[in-house]
Design a protein around this nucleic acid. Structure first.
Length: 435
RNA sequence: GCCCUGGUGGUGUAGCGUGGCCUAUCAUACGGGACUGUCACUCCCGUGACUCGGGUUCAAAUCCCGACCAGGGCGCCA
């Protein structure tokens, strides 16, 4: 019986319907009151002419606070003067929940609020269509990612988030107390997904959480991140991994372009069709390009954010928003990264950049046990701490590689969001643990 | 971890440099009233704020110190 606002049209004229939602706005003109009700799909106008509706129903609107939840039963009336070409003349109104006043922020968006205030009152904030639009798009992209990976032979897995001390290194971990032992929140499922390559499942992915205890406090970093993490076996080299990424990213962008038109409109956002194939720019060539525009990055250093952005501008001028940077120096990549077959100072590691920002990082991995042990030692880590991981490599491990794609970062760049916190329902950053 | 910036009603802001004219601006929200076609309705009346602690001074929203909270950048990374 209950209908959503988008299920009613002017041609429903005369129909008796029930609608329910939040009181978005109330406009009183003496003997005529307009209630604007908001539900998941949009807004609907309830019109109350004093003369034509029961006095009790009219009286209800007197102290009906904004954002209260009500249910309305009434007759649809075609009306050119109404916002959607129709309105509802109520027979009855039931107040399901009264909202307190004053509101902590304004869901109609008439009055601005700082991000901090908005996040403190995230439930109220999420009543705004331009905020929920982000999460509808996020859901569409994620669901498409699952479908694409499923169709490409990947099996979804779930690996532990609570891990013991042994870790891939490179970032600070959050300690947790685990009965009588100390444990940590996983920085990524990296080692587990690699272990899965020794099982015969061949291709796995995980919609993973990364927990990173770095004290960064920027519009580009979070301490709890979501990612699409993949690993695939029997590859020739990292190019097989990049092929998957290209397909995945194109599928995700296109599904948003095609199925989220309304949300993109709400966000006032236009997404161009992704151009394939994504260029593969060697690290050395990236350095050369940067030097051409007066930015010298010494070999063996990772690109600074400034250099990365500059490169993004150069690539955009060449018509590319999406591209890979390949063949990073082995030195600056983690121990599990496969060295280049010909020149050992390079590696089979790459990043995928979107508008001058890194959103994917991946590589072909070392699958040979002894080399892996050697690489762990070279990185100053202790092979004994990686016992269970390493044992997977002793008894038959196919060549493999994989990547992690940051979902929030992807959304920031796709939609041009001003802050990565906008892409998470309840962000966790240096200072925020609530709500 | 390092560096920079800021904290004024429920919300968003003006004022702070050059202390006094601040009994603190404006908008919106909130309470009351008028209004039968609003759609940021309009109009009238009303309530509501200088983060906290210390200092300088005849005098502090304004200057200084500290705490707390927040925003941003770097490194690191998704």
């Amino acid at each position: 019986m209950r209908k959503y606002s988008n299920e009613i049209t002017p041609s429903s004229d005369g129909e008796r319907v029930e609608v329910a939602g939040w009181v978005h706005d109330k406009r009183k003109l003496g003997g005529l009151v307009f209630l604007i009700i908001r539900d998941r799909t949009g807004l609907i106008q309830i019109t109350l002419p004093k003369k034509f509706i029961p006095p009790k129903v009219f009286e209800l609107t007197r102290n009906l606070s904004k954002e209260s939840v009500i249910s309305v039963v009434g007759k649809v009336q075609k009306e050119d003067k109404a916002p959607n070409g129709y309105e509802i003349i109520p027979d009855s109104i039931e107040i399901l929940s009264r909202s307190a006043t004053p509101l902590l922020l304004d869901p109609t968006g008439k009055v601005d609020a700082n991000l901090d205030t908005r996040l403190d009152n995230r439930v109220m904030d999420l009543r705004r269509s331009e905020i929920t639009a982000i999460f509808k798009i996020r859901a569409a992209a994620l669901s498409q990612a699952r479908e694409f990976l499923g169709n490409s032979g990947f099996i979804e897995v779930t690996t532990p988030s609570i891990i013991s001390t042994s870790s891939e290194g490179g970032t600070e971990l959050f300690p947790v107390s685990y009965f009588e032992e100390e444990a940590f929140l996983a920085q990524s499922p990296q080692l587990y997904k690699q272990m899965m390559m020794g099982t015969g499942l061949d291709r796995v992915f995980e919609t993973a959480k990364y927990f990173r205890a770095e004290e960064h406090d920027t519009i580009w970093h979070l301490n709890e991140v979501s990612a699409i993490d993949c690993e695939l076996a029997f590859i020739k080299d990292e190019r097989d991994v990049m092929k998957i990424i290209e397909g995945l990213v194109v599928a995700m962008i296109n599904v948003v372009r095609e199925k989220c038109k309304r949300e993109l409109e709400i966000l006032n956002c236009e997404i161009p069709e992704p151009k394939t194939p994504f260029p593969m720019l060697k690290y050395d060539d990236a350095l050369a390009k940067l030097e051409d525009c007066g930015m010298k990055v010494p070999f063996g250093e990772d690109l600074s954010s400034e250099a990365e952005k500059r490169l993004g501008e150069v690539m955009r001028e060449e018509g590319h928003d999406l591209y890979f940077i390949t063949k990073y120096p082995l030195e600056i990549k983690p121990f599990y990264t496969m060295p280049d077959a010909e020149e050992g100072i390079y590696s089979n590691a790459f990043d995928m950049e979107y508008k001058g920002r890194e959103i994917v990082s991946g590589s072909q991995r070392v699958h040979e046990h002894d080399l892996l042990v050697e690489r762990i030692k070279e990185k100053g880590l202790v092979p004994e701490n990686f016992k269970s991981y390493l044992s997977g490599f002793k008894f038959g491990m196919p060549p493999h590689g994989g990547f992690g794609l940051g979902i929030e970062r992807f959304l920031v760049l796709l939609l041009g969001l001003p802050n990565i916190r906008e892409a998470v329902l309840f962000p966790r950053d240096r200072k925020r643990l609530e709500p």
